[in-house]
Simulated scan of single mutants.
Amino acid sequence: MLMNSRQTPATLIYGPNGFRVARPGHFVVCAVTGEAIPLEELRYWSVDRQEAYASAAIATQRLSGDD
């Protein structure tokens, strides 16, 4: 069965000012909640941890060590 990019997570390389697509897809998975984040809605990530977050609150929680 073939999967299209809407069913496949993307692999990204996170940088300080944006991200690069290493493997095409439609979404990434939040490192904390497991929620799918459409690429066009992705606003929060960690360069050091190379992971995405669904919201500012989740990013703050994760990066402050309260997870």
Score class of each variant (00 low, 15 high):
residue 1 M to L: 01
residue 3 M to F: 12
residue 4 N to A: 00
residue 4 N to H: 07
residue 5 S to L: 13
residue 7 Q to T: 06
residue 8 T to R: 12
residue 11 T to P: 00
residue 11 T to F: 01
residue 12 L to E: 09
residue 14 Y to F: 15
residue 16 P to R: 14
residue 16 P to T: 10
residue 18 G to W: 06
residue 20 R to D: 15
residue 21 V to G: 06
residue 22 A to S: 15
residue 22 A to N: 14
residue 25 G to R: 03
residue 25 G to H: 02
residue 27 F to L: 03
residue 27 F to H: 08
residue 28 V to T: 11
residue 29 V to N: 05
residue 31 A to R: 07
residue 31 A to D: 12
residue 32 V to Q: 11
residue 33 T to S: 15
residue 36 A to W: 07
residue 36 A to Q: 12
residue 36 A to T: 12
residue 38 P to C: 08
residue 39 L to P: 05
residue 39 L to F: 05
residue 39 L to C: 04
residue 40 E to P: 00
residue 40 E to W: 06
residue 40 E to F: 09
residue 41 E to D: 14
residue 44 Y to I: 01
residue 44 Y to N: 12
residue 44 Y to M: 04
residue 46 S to I: 07
residue 46 S to V: 05
residue 46 S to W: 10
residue 46 S to D: 03
residue 47 V to T: 12
residue 47 V to Q: 12
residue 47 V to C: 08
residue 50 Q to Y: 07
residue 50 Q to N: 08
residue 51 E to H: 10
residue 51 E to M: 04
residue 55 S to H: 04
residue 56 A to W: 06
residue 56 A to C: 02
residue 58 I to Q: 02
residue 59 A to S: 10
residue 59 A to L: 15
residue 59 A to G: 00
residue 59 A to R: 15
residue 60 T to V: 10
residue 60 T to N: 05
residue 63 L to S: 05
residue 63 L to W: 01
residue 65 G to A: 05
residue 66 D to R: 13
